[in-house]
Amino acid sequence: MFFLLALLVSGCAGMKSVSIIRGGSAEQDVLSQVESVKANHLAHFLTVKVRINDSSEDLLFLVDTGAITVIDKQTADKFTFTDSVVNEFTDIAGNKKEVRLVRVGKMSIGKIRVSDCAAAIIDLKKHSPRIDGILGSNFLRYFKVELDYQNSQLVFHGNSGNQTLDGFIAIPIWQNMKQGFAPTTKCILDGSIDVVCMIDTGHDKAVSLPLSIIQKTTGFKDGKYIESNGGMSGGLFGTISKSYLIKAEKISAGNLTINNSPVTTNASDNLMTLGYAYLKNFRIVIDYPNSVAYFKPFPELKPESKYLSFGFRCSKEKGKTIVTGIWKGSVADNAGLSIGDELVSLNNKDVTTLSMMEIMEMMNSSSSLNVSYLQQSSAKIANSTLH
């Protein structure tokens, strides 16, 4: 999950960090309003324009319900923040890293304003020079928020906003502070396995589970899974070393049921994620103040069917784009791609000119992919067309 923050509470530097994360308030004059905000799409994310403090500059933020709010380091240098503290934590690979946490005086989207919102300062430009930040659930938690993928908009409903929810499936949620106040619920997997589930618009796939829970499923025990060479999932703070893919017969969250869903491993110790590839099939309203989420399916949309995609994952390492994971038996595996191969071009575009977000967008939207790569084993250029 590309932008899931495996977060900051566990690495907090004392009570000041906890105070910053817990702080914030929505300005009272917006709580009773209904505000529609135009959004665009970047890879699997909705993006919105955000303003910080009294600046008139529109900043591009990704909407990620599974994260705390983030401001890109280069963007943050333009502003002054009243409170800040440095947090140290350990990433997936076991490396210690530091993240600065600040209190933002004012953040606004259109007429929607939140004061004293916590934000982590992280280098996002290496993933895409277009990204200025991530709008997380610690901002959204004051509102009833509609995520409208079909019409490309966010709709903010104040606490007193009246909305007809006929035909919606309602499920209870709570806010998980350790994941930036992400909306979280209880699920039952295969009829008997209890699991905590996070509604995570930052995760591009349909459903993911920790390996410890996947290993309890009937499909895994029966050997009905696909495994990877290298890792096929991860985040800003590292990539897991190996991934598995199974099909879950049934996942239930209250009255919401998911049948025969592909499920892959994630880097969490105990959290299931419900991601974009599933969420895009619904009109979704997350009522943070009243602890309930509503789902209404779009009949014309279908769940993800080409789950393996082109079968490989890559990352930027010291200016190079390196293959870091491959599903066994996938088209990439059959074409001869290997861990450590360096991508040269995708669909005839030089990868040095592409950000990771642009690469993700290309891989998610293309029906075929022309890949030119430098083989690590032979130091020769190879070319393959993946379908």
Rank of each mutant, 00 (worst) to 15 (best):
A119C: 08
D123C: 09
L124I: 04
L124C: 01
K125R: 12
K125N: 11
K126R: 14
H127A: 12
S128W: 00
S128Q: 00
I131Y: 02
S137Q: 02
Y142V: 10
Y142F: 15
F143S: 03
E146W: 10
Q150T: 14
N151Y: 14
L154N: 06
F156P: 08
N159I: 14
N159G: 14
S160H: 10
S160D: 13
Q163W: 11
T164V: 14
L165C: 13
G167C: 04
G167W: 08
I169E: 06
I169T: 15
A170T: 12
I173E: 02
I173V: 07
I173L: 03
W174Y: 13
G180S: 04
C187P: 06
C187N: 11
I188H: 08
D190M: 06
G191E: 03
I193G: 02
D194L: 12
D194P: 12
D200F: 11
G202F: 13
G202I: 08
G202D: 01
D204M: 14
S208N: 01
L209A: 06
L209Y: 01
T218C: 07
G223P: 04
Y225P: 05
Y225F: 15
Y225W: 05
Y225H: 09
I226M: 12
E227W: 08
S228A: 03
G230P: 01
M232Y: 05
G234R: 00
